[in-house]
Design a protein around this nucleic acid. Structure first.
Length: 790
RNA sequence: GGGCCGGUGGUCUAGCCUGGUUAAGAUACCGCCUUGACAUGGCGGGGGUCGUUGGUUCGAAUCCGACCCGGCCCA
């Protein structure tokens, strides 16, 4: 008798060989799409963004779990379409490239800059893909797509042209969020807020032809010259008499009216507020409501305009301090307080955003809100609580989505403007267009027949690309038959931090283009936080790089940890100790496999007529474990199966059952009883491997191949373990068995051997009685403990 | 100001939806043990008024109310 497994411990080196095995056999590159809809499980995989090192351990856990989703679907018999793409457009790579080559985008020739971005991306991308493969991702790597490929960009442009033709896009000159550092318009979703200390300056405004003044507190004194009104709360007794009167703006001496408005907060500052173009979003609102004339205050480089007179062409901070100095010189400052002010920042560069009027393209969304709310009811959310993030976001939307960016590395907006009549001309959809560098694919302007054009230089917001992944992976535009077979796709797995961007924009765009929701369900994962429960961030320096951890413990240990640590939708803590303990479990499983592989395989075909009670008992426990696992998998909650498997395998199957049947397995006294044990032990082990496969695919694959000498565990023919009720009654014996075994072990420990004067060894005989409730298991218990019955 | 989530031995979590033995597991700590797969193992031990408080109930970690603390998101 010898074990089929020689390696004493499970080592992650074996994982690399298995990946090669899968690659050679095309195990997961199944792309066939010609069956009827209900046979497919299609995953709208998040395309990772290779923005630089290190990667985030939470992201690695995230992709591991997405893979578990795909493997569970295969276990249930679906054909799984698991694409993998790489998100390669947008500002982060531009910033990364600027740093890497020590250049500035705007001082670099556009073509040259694009080339360097591409190099940067290629570099980081290959490493990312390697990590994903080493995690055991069963995705279609052979047909990996990139969002900056001509094919994908043509796709993005086609959807834009279609939306343009439907009248959903417009060009608008409106105040918008602008990041001076990035030099572009940004969407609300790209803004973060931070409490920043700033000066609140109390400035005296004198009434016209009068020595009286009122005090106005502001954090933006540099915008004084762009002030077009002063508002006070209509209920504010202090200013009752002042409403409608005229004030003189200090330094600039222009006249503005005092107007009542409910948005003036009586308790902030002096209660009187200056309204400038534009200090914040409320100013924008007020300018619109009161039909005030905009004064352009800040230019695209972040400097004050000529309207600032002696303070023009200054950076915002400079202008602020100079104006404060001047006001103080003229005795117009009553006081200055330092306050903590909630400041909107650009998510990417962390620069305070300015509100500037610029011409940009907008995609309508405000008019579509109620439809979005209605349609989102049809999507199942895992977990349900995260639906609220989407609903809150939709409800808070107040302006249309600005989709153009004044940047370089992104999908070009496919528009040429007629030099004569200035009207936009759009090409036919289907091709990739680069208007800033190419001649238009038409000769004459549709409106005026002129033959000279200027190509649009702006590019799309990167969410314009990534928000069509469900359409791209289902061959929308390209193959109607495939598209009809597999759209809407089964599931969108993603992090909760990008619900208001990726999830929301995808819903919006897909509804516009297909009139259908893009996915049946959305599976929303929480953040990976550090050991102390704090959010990981590069600035805090607590980001854990997953690469060395995966190298050290192996992907399976990492995946098992990820499954057993994270409750679906909740944040999870990342600690190396926990990953170590996952590795120990795999070690245990490996050793159980080594033991089991000693014995001949008794399967359903030569199953004995009658099983021993002990065997029936473990089958009842197996069944209850299977039930828990399947329920957990049904909810896509891997925490449940991981813990059920660990508990059963280690604390019941190995600790009690295997010990109880060892003598029957080794000895040939009764062939039927031996077969009963061997049948049961293999049945349990196969079930464990099948159920663990979605979580830890490597070790289960290897053990299955070694012991059962086939690769059924990855094939489509594998059978999902069933929940059998036949032996249910035996479950009640579990706690009696555990209690009895424990008592005997304790007794042996407490009894000193007459020979060695040390506690009895587990092999030593001991006198005891078998309690009546364990009568059925008597034979196995006697052999297990070497009991001499009194 | 609004929304969502959480508070259970030293630490991290499960249990709560569906109330019912002595509150479970992992980890850390302490003690013992070469045993026919496994020392990356096995056995045993100490350690918790389940955030506070009021209510419902024969019975509350679990249901209801109020409050306190922490996290995240939005205004």
């Amino acid at each position: 008798m010898s074990s089929k497994i020689t390696e004493k411990i499970w080592s992650s080196d074996i994982e690399r060989k298995i990946i090669e095995d899968w690659r050679v056999n095309n195990a997961y590159d199944n792309v066939e799409t010609n069956h009827s809809k209900d046979r497919y499980f299609v995953i709208d995989t998040p395309p990772p963004y290779p923005s630089g090192r290190p990667w985030h351990i939470g992201a690695a856990a995230h992709y591991s779990q997405i893979d578990m989703i795909s493997r569970v679907a295969r276990l249930k018999g679906f054909k799984v379409i698991f694409p993998i793409g790489v998100d390669r457009n947008g500002i982060p790579v531009e910033i990364h490239t600027e740093k890497k080559y020590k250049i500035r985008m705007r001082n670099t020739e556009r073509k040259e800059f694009l080339k360097l971005c591409k190099l940067t991306l290629d570099d980081t991308e290959s490493e990312f893909i390697e990590i994903l493969e080493s995690l055991g991702l069963s995705a279609n790597f052979k047909q990996k797509y990139q969002t900056d490929s001509p094919d994908f960009r043509a796709f993005t442009q086609s959807t834009f042209i279609e939306m343009w033709n439907k009248g959903l896009v417009y060009l608008g000159n409106r105040p918008n969020n602008y990041c001076i550092d990035c030099g572009t318009t940004i969407a609300d979703a790209e803004i973060t807020y931070e409490e920043i200390e700033t000066k609140l300056v109390y400035i005296k405004f004198f009434l016209e032809n009068n020595n009286e003044f009122i005090v106005i507190a502001t954090t933006r004194p540099e915008l004084l010259f762009a002030c077009q009104a002063v508002i006070v709360n209509p209920d504010d007794e202090r200013y009752k008499e002042m409403q409608g009167k005229t004030l003189k703006i200090p330094i600039f001496n222009r006249e503005v009216k005092i107007r009542p408005h409910h948005s003036a907060n009586k308790s902030f500052g002096s209660g009187a507020v200056m309204v400038c173009s534009y200090g914040d979003l409320n100013d924008v609102q007020l300018f619109r409501e009161m039909s005030l004339t905009e004064i352009k205050s800040i230019d695209l480089n972040g400097k004050t305009t000529e309207f600032a007179e002696m303070f023009s062409n200054l950076r915002i901070k400079e202008a602020r301090s100079k104006i404060i100095d001047e006001l103080e010189k003229q005795g117009l400052v009553k006081k200055i307080e330092i306050i903590s002010h909630r400041t909107p920042l650009c998510e990417r560069s962390k620069t305070p955003i300015e509100i500037i009027s610029l011409e940009d393209y907008y995609l309508k969304q405000v008019d579509f809100k109620s439809n979005l709310l209605e349609q989102s009811k049809q999507i199942k959310f895992y977990p349900e609580m995260h639906r609220q993030i989407l609903l809150n976001w939709i409800n808070s939307i107040s302006i249309d989505w600005p989709i153009s960016r004044r940047r370089f590395y992104g999908t070009e907006i496919p528009i040429w403007y007629c030099t004569e009549c200035k009207k936009p001309n759009l090409p036919e959809p289907g091709k990739y267009y680069r208007p800033w560098d190419e001649h238009p694919p038409f000769d004459k302007c549709k409106s005026c027949n002129n033959d000279k054009f200027e190509g649009e230089k702006k590019i799309f917001d990167t969410w314009m690309d990534s928000s069509i992944t469900p359409l791209y992976i289902t061959k929308f535009y390209k193959n109607k038959e495939i598209f009809n077979n597999i759209y809407p796709v089964s599931i969108r797995p993603q992090g909760k931090d990008i619900v208001r961007t990726w999830l929301y924009y995808t819903l919006l765009r897909c509804l516009y283009l297909t009139n259908q929701i893009p996915w049946q369900s959305a599976w929303i994962m929480g953040y990976g936080v550090d050991e102390k429960g704090e959010k990981m961030s590069k600035s805090k320096g607590n980001v854990i790089d997953p690469l060395p951890i995966i190298k050290k413990y192996g992907a399976d240990a990492f995946r098992f940890w990820s499954a057993s640590e994270t409750n679906v939708g909740y944040d999870f803590r990342c600690s190396e100790l926990k990953i170590q303990s996952a590795q120990k479990f795999l070690s245990k499983l490996w050793n159980i496999g080594r033991f089991i592989s000693n014995f001949e395989i008794i399967d359903e075909n030569n199953k004995p007529q009658e099983l021993k009670a002990t065997d029936k008992w473990i089958l009842s426990e197996l069944s209850s474990m299977t039930k828990k696992c399947l329920e957990g998998y049904e909810e896509l909650n891997f925490f449940i199966p991981a813990n059920a498997l660990r508990e059963f395998t280690w604390n019941i199957f190995a600790a009690h059952y295997i010990e109880m049947i060892k003598s029957r397995a080794y000895n040939n006294e009764s062939e039927e009883e031996r077969k009963s044990a061997l049948y049961t032990i293999h049945k349990c082990f196969r079930t464990i491997l099948l159920l663990l496969e979605p979580i830890s695919p490597f070790i289960t694959y290897e053990l299955w191949k070694k012991i059962y000498e086939d690769v059924e565990i990855v094939s489509e023919q594998k059978t999902i373990p069933s929940v059998e009720k036949e032996y249910d009654a035996f479950v009640s014996s579990t706690h009696h068995i555990i209690k009895f075994n424990s008592e005997i072990w304790n007794k042996k420990k407490e009894t000193l051997s007459s020979v060695t004067n040390k506690p009895l060894s587990l092999k030593d005989p001991i006198k005891s009685q078998i309690p009546s409730e364990l009568e059925l298991f008597k034979d196995d218990l006697i052999m297990m403990h070497n009991i001499i019955v009194d």
